[in-house]
Design a protein around this nucleic acid. Structure first.
Length: 353
DNA sequence: ACTCCACAGGAAGGATTGGGCA
DNA sequence: TGCCCAATCCTTCCTGTGGAGT
């Protein structure tokens, strides 16, 4: 039944993008404007509605028609220097690797030197960009068109420097969720590309589209899960039961991938929260202090202070792995899916009392 | 109403890291 | 090899928040 699971990957760019024709046209119009300062774009919208794939499709299309150079940078967690270095490394005439310690102004100079033709840079996961100078530096470069992808466009613009913000506000494209029919069309196309013999019915695809409320990423992942579950269970076609179970299966898989992408400190904190079903900040810190001696023994990373732990906790929450509630004082933390096992074993718990 | 408390998260500065260079 | 420099990560210090105690 399963022909090619890569079709369901986030990175997969379909040959043509359904139900975003107007948006693609809008982007291409803006990219080809005669006024360089009017070509920059901010693409905003909720998670999983196809912001990245839209940008890719439009920019790829442009590349086939003009001699524009395109660069994609994942901005998540990167500093100004990190973003600019990633861009420089991807330029055709740029170096393959740039030293982390190269001063940012030198990186900018080298980017200018490496750019020979019109260049489009797509800054994906750009929510934290206003805290850096990267957007300003790039907007200041001639021959560079900036495309930023972020969740809340209005909030993003308000946090950016006013003149830069104005420029991107002019080219602000807000994407909404797909309608049920639209998303079902998209899923139908993916099913045809990734599965043999049409094993999923239109009604099932519509059920998925409805359940995920128009969020394409969740829909595509659920479709993948439904096919995987059907195969595991020896079904020749996807059954409704497989679809019903696919939502949680898909969310579970995404969380596992999220967890495994995080570094050591986050793993320690996740393991502690996972071990207790629910715990307060002070319990969390006590447990951390109790186990950190063993956990960090002989390893280069050293135990974190409480302030740094808070940063890691918000990252875990951002990755949909933990959640918390309550006012600052009585806040409780818990893991969202206790079936997502920690990758790290904690030393045995001391008996309480 | 006030003060206290526990905590979150911003700002500033220090320690560490690693490339460049004499 | 040792020094310099910039980036990064973390700590320290601090302010803000909202419930609890008086």
């Amino acid at each position: 039944m399963i022909a090619d699971l890569r079709v369901f990957d986030d990175e997969f760019v379909p040959p043509d993008l359904l139900h975003r024709e107007n948006e693609i046209e809008q982007l291409l119009r803006r990219f080809t404007t005669r006024h360089p300062a009017e070509s920059d774009v901010l693409i905003s919208g909720p998670s999983g509605v196809g912001k990245t794939v839209l940008a890719r499709t439009a920019v790829d299309h442009l590349e086939t028609q003009t001699d524009v150079t395109r660069v994609f940078v994942d901005s998540l967690g990167k500093t100004t220097g990190g973003i600019l270095r990633a861009m420089l490394e991807q330029l055709p005439r740029g170096p393959n690797e740039v030293a982390q310690t190269l001063p940012t102004r030198d990186v900018c100079r080298e980017i200018r030197e490496a750019i020979t033709s019109e260049t489009i840079v797509v800054l994906d996961e750009g929510d934290d960009l206003p805290q850096t100078n990267a957007v300003g530096e790039l907007l200041a470069m001639a021959n560079v068109t900036v495309v930023v992808i972020a969740h809340d466009g209005t909030d993003w613009l308000s946090r950016l420097d006013v003149t830069d913000g104005h420029r991107l506000d002019q080219g602000h494209l807000e994407l909404g969720r797909y309608g049920v029919d639209e998303l079902a069309d998209i899923l139908e196309r993916r099913a045809r590309q990734g599965l043999h013999g049409e094993p999923v019915s239109r009604a099932q695809l519509e059920a998925i589209a409805d359940e995920v409320a128009g969020v394409a990423r969740h829909g595509i992942q659920s479709l993948r899960s439904a096919a995987v579950l059907a195969r595991e269970r020896g079904h020749r076609r996807v059954r409704d039961r497989d679809v019903d179970d696919s939502y949680e299966h898909a969310r579970h898989r995404i969380r596992k991938l999220n967890l495994s992408s995080l570094p050591f400190h986050h793993q320690v904190l996740y393991a502690i929260i996972h071990e207790a079903e629910e715990l307060s900040a002070s319990e969390l810190h006590d447990r951390y202090d109790a186990v950190s001696g063993d956990i960090y023994a002989g390893s280069p990373p050293q135990p974190l202070g409480e302030r740094a732990r808070r940063e890691k906790l918000s990252k875990l929450a951002e990755y949909d792995l933990i959640d918390y509630d309550g006012p600052t004082r009585d806040r409780l933390y818990w893991v969202i899916d206790s079936d997502v096992e920690p990758l790290l074993e904690l030393p045995g718990r001391m008996p309480l009392e």
